[in-house]
Nucleic acid binder design. Sequence first.
RNA 1: GGCGACGUAGCCAAGUGGUAAGGCGGGGGUCUGCAAAACCCCUAUCCUGGGUUCGAUUCCCAGCGUCGCCUCCA
Length: 461
Amino acid sequence: MTLAITNTLTGKKEPFKPLGDPVTMYVCGMTPKDRPHLGHAFMFVHMDVIRRYLEYRGFAVRHIQNFTDIDDKIIDRARAAGRDPLDWSREYTEAYFDVMDRLRVRRAHEYPLVTANIPGIMEDVQELIDAGHAYPTSTGVYFDAATFEDYGALSGRTEEDGAAGARIAVDDEKRDPRDWAVWKLDNESSVAWDSPWGRGRPGWHIECSTMIRRTLGEQIDIHGGGADLMFPHHENELAQSEAATGCQPFVSYWVHTGLVLTDGEKMAHSLGNFTTTADVLTDVPPDVLRLYLLGVHYRSTLQFSMEAIEQTRTGYDRLVAVTRARGGNAEGDGSVLESEGSAARQAFESAMDDDFNAPRAIGALFEFGRAINRLAPSCSAADVEKAQGTLTSLLGVLGIELREPDTASDDATPFIDLLVQLRQQLREARQWELADRIRDDLDALDVVLEDKPDGTVWRRG
RNA sequence: GGCGACGUAGCCAAGUGGUAAGGCGGGGGUCUGCAAAACCCCUAUCCUGGGUUCGAUUCCCAGCGUCGCCUCCA
């Protein structure tokens, strides 16, 4: 079985054939204008898993992710708040790292910024003009969509669609309604650069074309982003890049993640209906949130609900419980458990090979967890530990760790131990009523007691 | 209006031309002093109507519904 990836450009699942070593992966990052919401978390966690799985499969991956640290929205918001735009975008860039680090999204190898790539952007704009793909007007420099034959291929839009759908104010200077700015003239903003076409800043799409070219080259393996970036962002990026470099295809696999919906509508900063990732993480452990986000295929729409996250929390706790299983028979035959382990790995890989089907992979891991619990009593400690190791390492490929609630720095521990001992004596004296009361009262304090054949164990609920 | 996606049990969610993973919840058991945990069993005519087929939830058409994109967007 080989890895196959759905490519938005063709709409088909295609065998993965990297251009070279390392695999080049570019993920469209945030425009840091507000705190990252669950839609961002969904996208970045899935992209993280894609990278992790490629590495698990033995590919070296070079992962670049940008920040569009200057754009119209950032300028508007900063101005409304009386703040410096770059200071504003830095603040939310930090907010991104803060939350994604906690979610264990691995850091990209490089995070290019628009503001640090202005000379390169200007070079590319000039190149497009020289090649006849872009032209200056009184408001900026525009890409001439008609000069790019395949325009519309990525989003499946024809020329007529584009013309009919052009809902922005008509700009008489534009040669075609589909044309877009690669350079915007602006003398008002504090954030602007002098250019051969006048003072201004880059248009929205050109930065990615430039940064990809400068960091990864003219052709890359994987380009990821949310489905809402397909058009116009990626469509325009593709046109610019191929027009500038002449290399085709610009991207081997266009990978788009589904959108997160809340109350039946897209979660978005602009709609004001977002739940921030940080808010969820105040009472949901990062691993639970990851498991929740990965419970939906990356291309699907996720209908966010707190109820579903809570359901995931219970499931996660069951996986954690698997790590508590202990072998019960030193002489036991571990071969059955071992074959369960290899079956689980096989199921996991075949699911992930099939367009990174994390939900199916997770299903296989739950089944394996059940097998470990079932077989542990008849297996040796070493066999059980080995199986648990397989489980945790496969979960690790998804970036999920199994953690007991933290009790390390718990002042109450000696007192709880004392109560448990006391209760044990009561049980031996068959004082069930008192013993049960201690158990119930501790339970109310989130301390769960379990009476096992060889003694009572407790843990934080 | 144009283009596209989706509609699977109470909830979340995979999947397949030959009668449907997994998780949560619910029911019943085993174990236990009783519990808890764990394990076992049960819990879906796959939106509707046509068509293709020996056979469709899976392919095609239509309808209904939901959502997305159509230059803010992950």
